[in-house]
Amino acid sequence: MANLGDIKRRIKSVKNTQQITKAMKMVAAAKLKRAQDEITEARPYAEKMAELTNSLASKTSKESHPLLSGIGGPKVGVILVTSDRGLCGGFNTVLLRTAENFLVEEEVTDPSMYLVGKRGAEYFKRRSANIVGNRVAGSGRPQYATAVEIATDMISRFLKEELDEVHLVYSQFQSALTQIPKVQRLLPLAPEEEPEKGDIKGGETEGPTEILYEPSSEDVLASLLPKYVEVQIFRALLESSASEHGARMTAMDSASKNAKEMIGALTLQYNRIRQAAITTELMEIISGAESLKG
């Protein structure tokens, strides 16, 4: 049986751990709040951008811009957004597995990986994958400039025909409890097509008036498309960041709960042993006194 000192030490160490997990949970909760706000702030821009791109791209032919044309091919690029730090439950594991599954399903043999976040980088470095880009997710809010850099890099590879397709793997934030891993095709761009709905809507609201483009619809489209890619990447960075904090908060919450349970169990054990020791001592004293009497 473990002695009293050992158990006391264990209780103390579990208490320390609990304090840390509690603090981490609180920090994650605060960061989550901020990350959620950022998503809400960024949403109007992303939505408007998607709306503009879709309406323009559906009016022009696929061949009008290199980012729209192409039917894919064997040279696949993947942008994977993970976190820098662990202790966030299954967050990174799930993302890595999603990426792996995607590569297996699409039968991609030598993907070019662009990795955001140290966790993903470590994983693919060990597997000696072809890493074309690697950056840390960084602390604080994801910067739009980061998304621009990633987008510029991937677009130039796509235009140079080093890549036939580019996919984006990230975690979509739903709530602190649920994060959904997502695989999205980024290039070639495939605007969501709703021809009939668009026509009816267009007929009603726009009437016979044509939209005026300045300088020209081709120029506007040419400048919109890369921007659209940037915005998609930026959104993925934001979503992943919020998901990470959500996952960490949940993980730390359950860790704190487990620590509490463990402390309870250990304290009970500690008290039992202490009681047993006292009883033994009393018995010894009583039996000693009895023998003296006799």
Partner: peptide, 17 residues
């Protein structure tokens, strides 16, 4: 992109850089 422009209510549909 092609110079400053002003918008008042009822402007025609217009998309510009």
């Amino acid at each position: 992109e092609l110079g400053e422009f002003g918008v008042l209510a009822g402007h025609t549909q217009y998309l510009t850089l």
